[in-house]
Amino acid sequence: MKHIKTLETRNLCESAKNGGCGECQTSCQSACKTSCGIANQQCENKKESK
């Protein structure tokens, strides 16, 4: 049995090379308005490599 299962996630170190386009939504829009976070935001740059 494999002891560790690693989920597929965006590689944050790699995203330093190709991220930062600034097209994404600002953090406090839509439903929240009072307790901001960025975890549930989408990257708008779909073609960017993960």
Binding site: T9, R10, L12, S15, A16, I38, Q41, Q42, C43, E48
Partner: peptide, 11 residues
């Protein structure tokens, strides 16, 4: 939470 398509490190 979108683990594969979430925000880049800058964000």
């Amino acid at each position: 939470i979108d683990l594969t398509g979430g925000p880049c490190i800058y964000k």
